[in-house]
């Protein structure tokens, strides 16, 4: 595995490099990139290392009335350690906490998790459930925002254009009348760490003081070519009281979630298993 590497230290240098280089890939934590290059060497490749870029909007986190914005370089470890995120968006905290291992979480970034566009991306799955927005920056220093549901265009494919870098991710604030939301990330695999999701489910269900569901985001991972938002399952929940959901409604909800799944059979699990388990864990949200 051989490649050239350039280390921009500012956004300006970064965009300059993007403009100049013909054959390049970004490297953030490189936990996906190096694995990929080792499997499939890419001759003449230049890696533009994002890790030295000094820019708060790229590396930091900021809270506003509209919600929380993380720079693309925010790491899984930083997500885990952030109390505000843990309180406001437990699903995001859980997804990062379950990712790989302590060592990998130190360097793995949220931007890398999104841009690698793996169907089993854990943070990606949580961010889909949270209906986050992706901020893309191009070489003319212009940004555009795309909703995460349109960011993933296929297996390992995103809406990023060749002259764009993912700059930040914004998560809309919770509905102001909500209290004690139901939010979590369910990861299914055989090991308790260093495990890639065989199936995953992210849910962020916002309820008011009476427990009535005001907003819902439910996303599935490792069950389709991309992480997917189970839109109809989310709609189904609106207006219902979380605690009073009946057995029949649970099953109907799980059926709706399952309708978004088109899993494959691979060496880790069969499609049959993935569906079976997705159905079960969908129900389990209410148990």
């Amino acid at each position: 595995m051989e490649f050239n590497i350039i280390n921009p230290v500012s956004v300006k240098e970064l965009l300059g490099a993007v403009k100049k280089e013909k054959h390049f890939r970004f490297g953030a934590g490189c936990t996906d990139l190096l694995m990929e290059l080792r499997k499939k060497p890419d001759e003449g490749l230049t890696v533009i290392n994002l890790a030295q870029v000094k820019d708060n909007s790229f590396t930091g986190i900021k809270k506003s009335a509209k919600g929380i914005r993380m720079g693309a370089m925010f790491t899984a470890h930083q997500i885990v350690m952030n109390e505000e995120l843990k309180k406001t968006f437990p699903v995001l905290h859980d997804s990062a906490h379950n990712l790989a291992s302590t060592q990998i979480r130190q360097v793995a970034t949220v931007g890398g998790n999104l841009c690698t566009a793996s169907p089993s991306g854990d943070i990606a799955c949580a961010l889909v459930a949270l209906r986050a927005d992706c901020e893309l920056l191009n070489t003319t220093q212009k940004t555009r925002t795309v909703n995460i549901s349109t960011f993933f265009t296929g297996v390992r494919q995103t809406a990023l254009k060749p002259n764009e870098v993912l700059y930040g991710i914004s998560i809309p604030a919770n509905h102001k009348n909500t209290k004690n939301n139901y939010s979590g990330f369910i990861k299914v695999g055989t090991r308790r760490s260093m495990e890639c999701s065989v199936v995953s489910l992210a849910y962020h269900i916002q309820v008011n003081v009476e427990g009535k569901i005001l907003k819902a985001g439910v996303a599935i991972g490792a069950s389709a070519p991309t992480v997917r938002l189970a839109e109809s399952a989310c709609d189904f929940l609106i207006g219902k009281t979380f605690k009073n959901i009946t057995q029949k409604e649970k099953e109907e909800f799980a059926d709706k979630v399952l309708s978004y799944a088109s899993p494959i059979t691979d060496i880790r699990a069969t499609a049959w298993y993935r569906k079976e388990v997705l159905y079960n864990i969908s129900k389990s949200i209410f148990e």
Binding site: S101, T190, R191, R192, S193, M194, C196, I267, R268
Partner: peptide, 28 residues
């Protein structure tokens, strides 16, 4: 008992890596 198996198909090994050969870790 639970996780480790070198999977083979027609004489070839399908999981020659720690990713898919499920050796347990300290967390388990």
């Amino acid at each position: 008992a639970l996780t480790e198996e070198l999977l083979m198909h027609e004489g070839k090994i399908l999981n020659p890596n720690f990713h898919n050969y499920k050796m347990l870790t300290a967390a388990d």
